[in-house]
Design a protein around this nucleic acid. Structure first.
Lengths: 214, 214, 214, 214
DNA sequence: TATGAATGAGTTTTCATTCAT
DNA sequence: AATGAATGAAAACTCATTCAT
């Protein structure tokens, strides 16, 4: 039947199109993460992907879209990791630990993606992203924190968290402690002192533990 | 007297030269902050300063020097504030508080400079800074932390800090908590929730307090 | 067959690429000759070649490469002509004549190239050539003289050249006489007097002839 | 008397004006000869002369006029030297020798001026000199040769020069030999061979001697 | 689809020249 | 007379994007 054939063909074409997009994104990710947004040229991406510069515009509207997609990827991976950690059963502190270490896994496993996410608030507008995309990333950013928020809410209900503070304040406070540790590590000051990120974060979690339970 | 006149003239000219330099630096700071290092063109700075691009080279050797001066300024202001806070007498916790709030003052009073300092560690080579400039900033960055380190060392000596951890680990941990709070605030999530930076930081310091003294 | 077609296409594209390069070099040669190295802008070359300035960087790495290629061409043509003349059999004087007239052929046939070669030694570093390029030209320059040197050496061995001078001194002396005549002609003083370059050079060769054989 | 005073004042002012012009020309000469026409900026000249760039335009119409004056200087010095040598009494060969060595003196004593004169035909139009100035330099250039021409004419009259050639041809031929030797030396090929310019030129003159007298 | 040549606007920087002081 | 700040046009070069093939 002609219709079936056409459909199969269309499917294959769509699949090939996706393959191409992926190929370009893979190349772009490598280059963007190595050279930054402004330091990356379309030609460099094309070279890395082993195809012609012109073709990239067949699959993407331009540099910005590609960069946007990569940002999305970064958030999605981050969210996936946190989501899995969020499924952990146990006390509040166990759940906090799970989330913290999941974030460390992201930081360790996808350092360039971590940079992109951190960059977000410094670099986005600078980078000329569309309002639209920026909105999406904002949303994804909110999702990241939501996992911790849920844990905190439940910890307060169960009385594990003694404080009378707002659960948002506590959530963001905890998040800040975790991110703070990662930033400190990122700057590379710990290494020459023989302190590992794990050492630092363990200490921070211990302080939080005694701080929260008083 | 001719000599006096000439001197007065020279003084005025020098003053005007400084004014111009300041005018350019002011414009440059705004643009760098809005667009990032690579995203900022000399033309844009000139436009912002309302003078011709060529003139900028009359006052500075180039983009790098301008950016360098701004970075230096940022660090020096930061260091000055911390240094003053560092002179506070009292218990370790009082000194920690003084330093934390001094950093908040910097964050609040010089938001653009704060960004530049943070940027330093995110932007890296991607941002295209000179090795030389990066080295200088690294050094100034080390100075910032040294004030807290000193307080921690003395707090450990006096027994105010109970822990057996390395004083570096503690110092960086505390710094991370403070910076983490600022980053959280910076992202703008607190505002719609009606939480102030001060609220958040007070909570963090309280947690630390009970955490450290156990 | 697709393969054949693709090959043919590739060949044509390569040919077109070469054509473009040639087109640019032709334009560049004209402009360089008219305005000198520093006086020539990429824009001017592009204008002469009737294409956009940016495109030139698609075919060449920059002004230096273009100038380098043109210099190389000049020397290679010069060397080719001298080499052919150098194959002449006969007495030393016959060989000297062959080389001298070959140089005149070069001067007449490729006046622009002659200028570039002469320029080399006048323009020097003032002209802003790369060390690398200057070295290459130096080498090629040495090759030019080597043909005459060989003839002189053989002329001294066979006793045709009576003098006891160093063969280098004689070679350079002869070369100087030939070039001197060309420079005189170049300045355009001969024309209004109704003297041709050929007249002048013939006279010079005659003087040399009687001078050498004494 | 007011008139006298005014005159004296005017004289002094004129003298001071000349002094300034000289000061600027001295500075300009140093810079032009070191860096070439296009490589020299008015600022560089002003710096060398230790006065402000703007002032230069008070004494000269622009860069071109300054360069033109320096070219004139070059020719005048050259002509002076040749003129003096031209006063030599003696045989034609003695007079030829005197002129040749005077030219060598110029080449040795004012190497940068020599460059400017040689450059003339390669570089002038390229350099954007006025028609007017170019004409003047052309004239001065003619004067240079005229000294040799006079000697040749007299040498032919007296029978010292045997040839039946046109005296212009002979004059230019001789001039070409001398200049040819200087160019060869200029290129720096002689030095590594241990041959001096004097050696080369002596050889050339000897060849001419026997060539002319046959 | 895919290529890669082509363009035009952009980048940093330099500099002759003018002009208010 | 003298200064030096200011300008505008130029330089070399880069690059996102388009387009004929």
């Amino acid at each position: 039947m002609g219709a079936e054939l056409r459909e199969a063909l269309a499917r294959r074409q769509e699949a090939e199109r996706q393959e191409r997009r992926t190929r370009i994104l893979d190349a772009a990710r490598r280059v963007f993460l190595a050279k930054g947004y402004l330091g990356t040229s379309i030609r460099a991406i094309a070279l890395e992907a082993e195809l012609s510069p012109g073709l990239i515009y067949f699959y993407f509207t331009g540099k910005d879209e590609i960069y946007g997609r990569i940002c999305e990827e970064a958030f999605h991976i981050n969210i996936d990791l946190l989501e899995k950690a969020s499924a952990t059963q146990g006390s509040f502190l166990e759940r906090l630990n799970a989330l913290a270490w999941a974030y460390v896994d992201f930081y360790r496993g996808y350092p360039e993606y971590f940079d992109i996410i951190s960059f977000k608030d410094m670099g986005f507008k600078k980078v000329g992203l569309t309002e639209e995309l920026h909105g999406l990333l904002e949303e994804l950013s909110q999702q990241s924190i939501s996992f911790l928020k849920r844990a905190v809410d439940e910890g307060m209900e169960s009385g594990e968290i003694a404080g009378t503070e707002d659960s948002w304040t506590i959530s963001y406070g905890l998040w800040g402690v975790i991110e703070g540790a990662l930033y400190i590590h990122k700057r590379g000051y710990l290494e020459p002192l023989g302190i590992s990120l794990e050492d630092l974060l363990k200490q921070q979690l211990r302080i939080i533990e005694s701080g929260l339970s008083r």
